[in-house]
């Protein structure tokens, strides 16, 4: 299927839904992290200035802080923040191993040290080229460490399906076709009316009517398929 997902098989015979995140999202996360590091750095500079050390001691401490912010910040956050630096957390992406499991020290250190190579010649130019050449948007560090940056699963509320009167299908449908009907009925609330009716018209061979009537009929079938809906209405036909 061409849906941008990676379908990873597990020993239990199911597939894990992971969606690799592309360069724009990751650039945004990096930018946010950059701002956080800058703010953190400024705050540390403020703290270092407080006790009134001499100038050279202050500069030495600042260089140490700069070192930690450059190299340790992404490593520590990714290892202890389940694959997310603060920027990635806000953007909603996450680093995982290429088998979908959380990363450990090895992966976290490798992929972040290789930033030095990905950053070349400037602003992650090489990393971008590597991402575009790779089917899973991996930069050099990701290839080396065997990691992926994927979208974090979002907490979705289960959508309430529009209720209808349960109705039997006029002829049997294949599971994929039943799935398509359910998918459409679930999403119909989010579509503009014109589009909704246009799609409902496509089901005319099944519903034998068009527009609002067809949509209503599809909702009835969906209710029949899932077992959802009003128990029985006196005027409903079996």
């Amino acid at each position: 299927m061409l849906d941008g997902h990676l379908h990873l098989q597990t020993p239990e015979g199911i597939t894990l839904p992971l969606t690799p995140a592309g360069p724009p999202k990751r650039a945004l996360a990096w930018l946010l992290d950059f701002i956080f590091r800058l703010l953190l750095g400024l705050f540390m500079v403020f703290l270092i200035n407080l006790p009134g050390f001499s100038g050279r001691l202050e500069t030495g401490l600042m260089l140490l802080v700069a070192f930690l912010l450059l190299w340790a910040y992404p490593v520590l956050f990714e290892i202890y923040g389940s694959g997310m630096t603060p920027g990635k957390r806000i953007v909603g992406i996450q680093v995982v191993r290429d088998n979908g499991l959380p990363i450990g020290w090895r992966e976290g250190v490798l992929r972040n040290l290789l930033r030095a190579a990905d950053f070349l010649p400037m602003w992650y130019g090489l990393g971008l080229v590597a991402m575009l050449l790779n089917s899973d948007f991996r930069r050099l560090g990701d290839v080396l460490a065997g990691t992926l940056v994927v979208y974090r699963p979002q907490k979705k509320k289960t959508k309430a399906m529009p209720t209808g009167t349960p109705r039997e299908l006029p002829f049997p449908l294949k599971p994929e076709e039943q799935h398509a009907i359910l998918d459409f009925v679930e999403r119909s609330g989010q579509l503009p009316p014109a589009r909704r009716f246009e799609l409902a018209n496509l089901a005319e061979p099944l519903t034998a009517c068009t527009g609002q009537a067809s949509l209503q009929r599809l909702q009835d079938y969906a209710a029949g398929l899932t077992g959802n809906g009003h128990a029985t209405r006196p005027d409903s036909q079996p």
């Binding site: 050390f53 001499s54 100038g55 050279r56 001691l57 500069t59 030495g60 401490l61 600042m62 260089l63 140490l64 700069a66 070192f67 450059l70 190299w71 040290l113 290789l114 930033r115 030095a116 190579a117 050099l140 080396l144």
Partner: peptide
């Protein structure tokens, strides 16, 4: 002691970063 601290910060920043870059350059 304070200028020792300055040089310490500088050596960490400079030398360890060089170390990492030398390694990362290996992918080419």
């Amino acid at each position: 002691a304070d200028s020792d601290m300055l040089m310490f910060g500088f050596y960490i920043w400079n030398n360890v970063s060089i170390c990492f870059r030398v390694f990362a350059g290996g992918v080419f």
